[in-house]
Design a protein around this nucleic acid. Sequence first.
DNA 1: TAAAAACCCTTGAGTCGCTACAAGGTCAAG
DNA 2: CTTGACCTTGTAGCGACTCAAGGGTTTTTA
Lengths: 156, 156
Amino acid sequence: MKIGELARLAGSNVETIRYYERKGLLPIPARSEGNYRIYGPMHQERLTFIRHCRGLDMTLDEIRTLLHFKESPEENCGEVNRLLDDHIGHVVHRIGELQALEKQLQELRGRCPDERRASTCGILEGLSQSGINEKPMENHIPGVHGTALKSPKEPE
Amino acid sequence: MKIGELARLAGSNVETIRYYERKGLLPIPARSEGNYRIYGPMHQERLTFIRHCRGLDMTLDEIRTLLHFKESPEENCGEVNRLLDDHIGHVVHRIGELQALEKQLQELRGRCPDERRASTCGILEGLSQSGINEKPMENHIPGVHGTALKSPKEPE
DNA sequence: TAAAAACCCTTGAGTCGCTACAAGGTCAAG
DNA sequence: CTTGACCTTGTAGCGACTCAAGGGTTTTTA
Ligand SMILES: [Zn+2]
Ligand SMILES: [Zn+2]
Ligand SMILES: [Zn+2]
Ligand SMILES: [Zn+2]
């Protein structure tokens, strides 16, 4: 099967498949005479696995680890289980952050119940004040991973 | 004041300040004889405002809008209030997504209560099956904004 | 006073997980 | 033989930064 069909079958997209190949998540496929990538059922299974994982918001690194265990069936799966626990931790952590965020935002919203001149808007005022969200949340993470709003790292 | 001091005062970081300047969020400062950026209290206030907003996970675009209203005190602040409502919506939406995600992950985790051979790991098995998270969540968003896991867009 | 340290400058590239071209090659049907 | 769907490589872009190279300037210290 060629790349377009694989994409359709896995509900994915051609460029994404080539991207996964570059990133080492999908094994390099055979090529046809005309230099087309040729895939078999194992590629399809693997791609589907990857997409399931991405649907659960895992990073490509996390997925790489899981794929390793898929390929070595006699290894102990403890690390898989731990990886999932950690990942659940990522999600739970992020939920907590966002709930705190919502509270702050609601509080801020409450400061301007009506429409006024911008100079007296309680929201703009609140955002200018120190005291509201003085320091960025520690470990403030977009999605469930990655890094955003790091505080400037202190010299060692 | 020079850029380093401003960074310290605002709990920010020098590169970020220059980045905001490039992006038009901070007004272009005067320069010293030695070509150093020279800032005053208004720059500090503005940067602090921006950092507060980022601490609340707003995009730079959202912040740009707020800054506009800060600068035009006699405009009506209705749009500010709406922007905040929308942004609260972004956060609430994302919380809902992450809670659904956590449920799925917990369910998956339950499939492998002990450590076994990888070939019989309930988690790896679950991720391979169709049926679990068949299609990516609609509108699955990293952070509170942006777009990830778009399904391939259909031709118009 | 001169060297060393600390600060600042610009430019350009890297991060993540894709998406979207552009310019061309290949293949089946009509 | 031509059309058009499909494929190829390569490059650039998103957001919000972060970091490194290779300089110039200012401040501190010996
Ligand atoms: Zn994770
Ligand atoms: Zn208002
Ligand atoms: Zn928002
Ligand atoms: Zn297991």
